[in-house]
Design a protein around this nucleic acid. Structure first.
Length: 277
DNA sequence: AATGGGGCCTGAGAGC
DNA sequence: TGCTCTCAGGCCCCAT
């Protein structure tokens, strides 16, 4: 559920607390949270004593470059949270990793469903990092033009929804913003990516950037299931601006017809059959 | 190569 | 009330 706007919100909130801070100690209370490592001790040994330069984001991943040339990679999965807390603050259930910083703050990784993970990866450049290196363009970068989106969609027989959610095609979009961007563009998410006309590609490009930008301004979407919380444990506000996501059966905000919620290729998809063609 | 589908995982909510 | 079942979904892996 944390998609680009939620992860970017967390990045902006934690960067002031963690940049130029040294990690003085670390605790792992659930092995699975650091499963990329042979054992939790290995993770702890590699992270303690390191200084965090800053906090970057690539798609839905957070990347904290460290002073030894490695980076701390945080992937939130679907229920992961990253909290900045004081040591005496109550520890939330499912807190799996705690990093104590030189400034007295704690960076806490919390994840009930444990789909996310924390890991030390080599280098500072996401382009050189395994799967992050295969990520598609950042949709809010200036370099992401309608022409680039056209290239991403060209020749793909998969549905528009599937392509928008494919991190190798475009980085950072999940179910919420795939459904919403298709609605804003007036395009059915069931259509094949290659079927879009140039004019529809321009509309979809604008819709993607519009919905992501407005959601960041609202500090992300806290939907009903596994509700996202920001780094200060507050909910976002963008759920009040959604047109179709988690509005199944409710009247479309534009035409008044019920929003459809339909199984599709192993997922479910929200859309308005009247407004989206 | 591209695409689809299963499995991981836990909590909330529905149904009995 | 309390149990069981289903669903949610990012990401990885595997089959076609």
């Amino acid at each position: 559920m944390p998609e680009l706007p939620e992860v970017e919100t967390i990045r902006r909130q934690i960067v002031h607390h963690v940049q130029r801070q040294t990690i003085v100690s670390a605790h792992v209370t659930r092995d699975r949270a650091v499963r990329a490592h042979a054992c939790p001790d290995e993770f702890v040994q590699r992270v303690v004593g390191r200084t965090i330069y800053t906090v970057c984001r690539r798609g839905k991943a957070l990347l904290l470059p460290l002073d030894d040339g490695n980076s701390l990679l945080v992937r939130l999965g679907m229920s992961g949270r990253l909290l900045v807390a004081d040591p005496h603050d109550p520890v939330a259930p499912h807190t799996h990793v705690v990093l104590m910083l030189a400034n007295g703050k704690e960076l806490r990784y919390v994840d009930p469903r444990t789909f996310g993970q924390v890991a030390i990866v080599e280098g500072h450049d996401p382009c050189s990092m395994g799967e992050l290196g295969h990520y598609g363009p950042e949709p809010l970068d200036d370099a992401f033009t309608p022409e680039m989106l056209q290239q991403v969609l060209a020749g793909k027989q998969a549905s528009i929804q599937a392509v928008l959610m494919d991190q190798r095609a475009i980085a950072g979009i999940g179910k919420i913003y795939a459904d919403e961007a298709c609605f804003l563009a007036g395009i059915s998410p069931l259509r094949s990516a290659a079927s879009l006309t140039p004019e529809e590609v321009v509309r979809l490009h604008a819709a993607i950037r519009d919905v992501l930008t407005r959601s960041i301004e609202a500090r992300g979407t806290s939907s009903q299931d596994a509700a996202y919380r920001d780094a200060h444990d507050n909910t976002g506000d963008f759920q009040h601006q959604l047109y179709v996501y988690q509005r199944a059966g409710l009247p479309c905000r534009v035409c008044g017809m019920p929003v459809e919620y339909r199984p599709f290729q192993g997922r479910r998809i929200h859309f308005c059959p009247h407004c989206q063609r």
